[in-house]
């Protein structure tokens, strides 16, 4: 028992006072443990949780039975809203659906196309969930932290869901990002119309994968090669800017 948390009365303690003192001591101990757990998980909350020290990582995983179970650890929630990285720009998923899983996309007509999120109000969280899933995919598709296991898992889930919903056998899952315009329009690169922030020039495909159902009814995924992995075409002119601003 911590000395400072003893009952403060200097009078001879009666039975009820002594019980109250014991209760307060137990409550004090529980409060200290609880707040220590909460303080550790909140202090270890960083964008993507990649800036945790090994000690923080260990403590967070020890406390997980309590803090994760009751969601005191908001590990996936971006309370920074934006950090100004391209990763924080609007990202969404487009799923193009094709009828047959056995034929390649080039030999089929597009059956339908689904977008996630689709519709809804930006004042509500439902639409934001679609953006958040797309950002999770994009974060693992961008070269510095590329992780094919994560991207293919999301593409498989999203593509599989869209195919189940529509009864199609093949899908192309694309993760799209729209670069935002800077405050100073003079800083916008050539090729990006300053007066149309929704122009397709601002959109870029972050990730693209073919998803199909095989003969065993298993959903398969094959990532399409990213632009960075494809040899550049030999052209005479200067390469066009790929982002709207110089400093992005």
């Amino acid at each position: 028992m911590i000395a400072g948390m003893q009952p403060t009365s200097s009078k001879p303690a009666g039975s009820s006072e002594s019980n109250q003192g014991l209760l307060r001591s137990i409550a004090s101990l529980l409060i200290c443990i609880h707040l220590f757990c909460v303080a550790v998980v909140l202090a270890a909350n960083s964008p993507g949780n990649f800036r945790r020290s090994p000690l923080q990582g260990r403590l967070v995983s020890i406390f997980a039975a309590f803090t994760r179970l009751l969601h005191f650890d908001p590990e996936f929630t971006p309370y920074y809203y934006t950090l100004g990285r391209p990763l924080d720009d609007d990202t969404w998923l487009v799923i193009d659906l094709y009828p047959s899983g056995e034929q390649p996309v080039a030999q089929q007509q597009l059956a339908s196309s689904i977008q996630l999120p689709d519709g809804g109000s930006n004042w509500l969280e439902n639409r934001r969930r679609g953006f958040q899933l797309a950002k999770l995919l994009a974060a693992s598709a961008d070269p510095p932290s590329e992780n094919d296991d994560i991207t293919s898992e999301i593409a498989r889930a999203v593509g599989g869901w869209a195919m189940r919903q529509s009864g199609n056998g093949r899908a192309v899952v694309r993760c799209m990002r729209r670069y935002s315009q800077p405050f100073d329009l003079a800083a916008v690169n050539a090729g990006f119309p300053a007066d149309r922030p929704t122009d397709p020039a601002y959109d870029t495909t972050v990730y693209e994968a073919d998803v199909w159902t095989d003969e065993d009814k298993q959903v398969q995924v094959q990532k399409r090669a990213s632009r960075a992995e494809v040899a550049p075409r030999q052209t005479g002119g200067a390469a066009p800017a790929t982002t709207p601003t110089v400093n992005k």
């Binding site: 809203y81 934001r128 953006f131 729209r178 935002s180 315009q181 405050f183 922030p197």
Partner: peptide, 9 residues
């Protein structure tokens, strides 16, 4: 500004 400039969200 970056938040205000997001045309989709």
């Amino acid at each position: 500004w970056i938040l205000l400039a997001q045309t989709q969200s």
